[in-house]
Simulated scan of single mutants.
Amino acid sequence: MFRKKKNTFTFHQKKRIITPKLIREIFSWILVTVMAVFLAFVIVTAFGMQVKVIGDSMEPTIYNGQGVLVDRLIFKLFGAKNGDVVVFLPNGNTNSHYYVKRVVGCPGDKVQIIDGDLYINGVVSKTGNIDYDKMEDAGIAASELKLGSGEYFLLGDNRNSSEDSRSANIGVVTTRMMVGKAWFKVKNQQGGAGFILD
């Protein structure tokens, strides 16, 4: 008589052992991923906002339709200074398009345009390395303006083709109206890419 052999095949499932070392490694990967996502978010939020310039008011620095990247974080910490190119909404109107202009007068300054020249505190201003044309329209700066706390006077680099602080509907621009500093211009058909210098 034949004896039936017992099935000797057994299937043992290998148990996975979760060690403290494995847990630490998993958490370190999660932490690195979260930090990378957070850092990318901060960089894009702070420096990655892009605004297109409308019109030729900032030529030859920035051309019509050229995009600029806006620094919002450092700008909020340190504010604007003379020569900065800033992005703002006139009177804080969120329905308006963004304006891009250069700061020529800061809080405490006395601003006036006399015979087409910009005077800051009684001295002819030479902001930046641009040779500006004499301004045909002094606008509200025909009389001396004293800038208060948080107030700035802004002009376009193409001064005879710019709606800026001289215009009564824009006027003096406050810190509250400013979005940030334009720090980099994106290449387009007319202008090359590069940092925007004071």
Score class of each variant (00 low, 15 high):
3 R>C: 15
8 T>V: 14
9 F>G: 13
9 F>C: 10
11 F>Y: 12
15 K>R: 15
17 I>S: 14
17 I>K: 14
19 T>G: 11
21 K>D: 14
22 L>H: 11
24 R>G: 12
26 I>F: 11
27 F>R: 12
31 L>T: 15
34 V>H: 02
38 F>N: 10
40 A>F: 14
41 F>W: 14
42 V>P: 05
43 I>H: 07
47 F>M: 15
52 K>A: 13
52 K>Q: 13
52 K>L: 09
54 I>C: 07
56 D>S: 15
64 N>A: 13
65 G>T: 11
68 V>T: 06
70 V>M: 06
70 V>P: 02
70 V>R: 01
76 K>T: 11
77 L>K: 05
80 A>E: 04
81 K>I: 12
82 N>R: 15
85 V>W: 02
87 V>W: 03
87 V>D: 04
88 F>P: 02
90 P>N: 09
95 N>S: 15
100 V>M: 02
102 R>L: 01
102 R>S: 01
107 P>Y: 05
113 I>S: 01
113 I>K: 01
114 I>R: 00
120 I>P: 00
121 N>R: 13
121 N>H: 09
126 K>I: 00
129 N>W: 00
130 I>D: 07
132 Y>D: 07
133 D>R: 08
136 E>K: 15
136 E>Y: 12
141 A>G: 10
141 A>E: 05
142 A>P: 00
142 A>Y: 07
143 S>W: 02
143 S>A: 13
143 S>Q: 14
147 L>S: 07
150 G>N: 15
153 F>W: 14
154 L>D: 00
155 L>E: 06
157 D>R: 02
160 N>H: 08
160 N>G: 08
165 S>L: 06
168 A>F: 09
170 I>L: 10
170 I>S: 03
171 G>N: 08
174 T>V: 11
175 T>D: 15
177 M>P: 05
183 W>T: 00
192 G>A: 12
195 F>M: 12
198 D>Q: 13
